[in-house]
Design a binder for these strands. Structure first.
Lengths: 234, 234
DNA sequence: TAGTGGTCTAGACCACGCA
DNA sequence: GCGTGGTCTAGACCACTAT
C-alpha cells in the first residue's frame, strides 16, 4: 500500500472501534506492542495514536495506557453564515440604519457598559428575490475614532465590524438560538404578518479577556429558514 | 520554564497571530529556521506546528511552507443534549407512545424506506416542575427481533435506541433547527395555547454508508428554551 | 522495580515547488 | 538543484502507575 504507516495504524484501530471489537473504556494495546505488531518505531505509533486522540476516538493516561473514549453525544458542528442567514444566500443587503445612540438597559447589560456610554447600532435587512429573509440588529461599543463607513458596514460580518481593534483569532463568538413570534418592528421589516414564527439568533462577541465587544440579533423569517448542524467521527 | 519546548513554540507563534504581527495568508518561517531559533530538533518544531494545524491557526503546503489560516467565521460548536432539551434539565420523562406502525409519506421519505415497511414510533414528553418543556417524536425502521423495552426507551437518547446494531462511532447525526407555531398536536402535548412559538429540532441519524437509521423531531416550548453555540480558537 | 506514556534528538530518505 | 514539508528510525531520559 502507498499509505503512510501511521495511517494504517489509525485505520486498524478505528476499525476495531467502529466494529465494536473495542468498546468505550477498553484499553488499546501498549505502544511498544503496537511497534512490534506493525514493525515500526515508537514515534510512528505515537503519530497514529495522536490522530486518534485528535479525532476523539481515544485518550491517554500517562503511566497507564491508551483507552477508547466515551463518544460525546451532545457536540455538533453548526454552520451559521451571517451573510447568508438561514442558508438562503440572498441577493441584496439593505442598510436601514447606522447610528451612534445611548444604549437601552438591555444593550448596556449585554455589552457590560454603563448606559451613559454610546454604542453604534447597525440595522440591516437581507433580501432574496426582493423579499426580506432576515432582519439584523447589532450593537458595538462606540469609541472616538472608530471608522463608520457605511459601504464597509453594509457587507461586513459582525466580527469584521470590530476586527480593526481585535484579531478574529482572539475572539469568541457565542450564539443563542430560540423561537419567537413576529411583533411590530420585526414584522414590519420582514414584511410578514404579526404572529408568524421567527428563528432568533442572538450573537455575542467577546475579546480574549471575555469582555463583550459586540451584541445583536438576527431574525430569520420563513418556514424553510433554518440552521444545520452535524456530529460525526472521521 | 517547565513547559515542553513544543508548547513554547506553539505559544510564540500563537502570539504573533493574535497580535496581528502575522496575518492570514502570511508564511511562518521554515521549520529549519524554527529549529535554529528555538534550539530544538526538527521533530520538536513539527510537533508544535501540528498543534497549530489542529487548532485551525495554520496550514501546510508541502514543498512550500506553513501559512496562517483564514479564520473560519461560519463554524460553531453546538451543544445539544437530547435528554435535557433547551438546556432545561427536566425532572420527568413521560413515554406517551411506543408503537410499530406503517410510516406516513414524510417518514418513509426521510428514512428512505418503502411505505409498506414498518417503523417504530416513539413519542415522549419532557417535563420540568410538572410542566412540559419539550415534545419528542422519533421514527426507527422496524426489523424482526428489534428489542422494544419501554423502560429502556424512556430514558434513551436517539443514538442509543439504534446503537444495538450500529456503533455510535460509525454514525452521523444531522440536525435542522427552525421556528414554528404550536398547532393542535404539539400544543396539546406541550399544554400551551395554539399559536405559541416553538423551536423545532429535526434529527436524522445516518449509518456509515449514509443510510438513514432514524428520523424525528423535538419541539421545544417556552421563550427561554434555546440552544447555544460557541466559536473560538484555543 | 518494571511497564507505561510524554518529550526529545540527530540523523535519513522522499515528493514537491520553484527558479 | 536547492529548499520545503512529510515520513520514519533507533535510540534516550523523564514522570507516572502499578505491584
Amino acid at each position: 500500500m502507498g499509505a503512510p504507516e501511521y495511517i494504517k495504524i489509525v485505520e486498524a484501530i478505528k476499525n476495531k472501534i467502529t466494529s465494536q471489537e473495542l468498546e468505550p473504556g477498553d484499553a488499546i494495546q501498549s505502544e511498544n506492542l503496537l511497534c512490534e505488531e506493525f514493525n515500526v518505531s515508537r514515534m510512528t505509533v505515537r503519530k497514529g495514536l495522536a490522530v486518534l486522540v485528535n479525532e476523539g476516538y481515544i485518550y491517554s493516561i500517562p503511566g497507564k495506557g491508551n483507552y477508547v473514549c466515551e463518544p460525546d453525544l451532545d457536540q455538533y458542528i453548526l454552520h451559521y453564515n451571517e451573510m447568508a442567514p438561514g442558508n438562503e444566500r440572498g441577493d441584496e443587503v439593505r442598510l436601514i440604519e447606522v447610528n451612534v445612540v445611548k444604549p437601552s438597559y438591555e444593550v448596556s447589560f449585554n455589552l457590560e457598559i454603563p448606559e451613559t456610554k454610546h454604542v453604534i447600532v447597525v440595522k440591516r435587512i437581507f433580501l432574496k428575490d426582493g423579499f426580506p429573509t432576515a432582519y439584523d440588529i447589532k450593537y458595538i461599543p462606540y469609541y472616538r475614532g472608530i471608522p463608520i463607513v457605511e459601504k464597509e458596514i453594509r457587507y461586513a460580518t459582525f466580527p469584521e465590524m470590530v476586527a480593526k481593534k481585535n484579531s478574529i483569532f482572539a475572539m469568541t463568538k457565542k450564539l443563542k438560538i430560540r423561537a419567537a413570534i413576529a411583533e411590530d418592528e420585526t414584522a414590519r421589516n420582514l414584511e410578514i404578518p404579526v404572529g408568524m414564527p421567527l428563528l432568533v439568533v442572538e450573537e455575542k462577541l467577546l475579546d480574549e479577556k471575555d469582555k463583550p465587544i459586540g451584541w445583536g440579533m438576527m431574525y430569520l423569517a420563513g418556514e424553510d429558514a433554518g440552521l444545520e448542524a452535524v456530529a460525526s467521527f472521521d
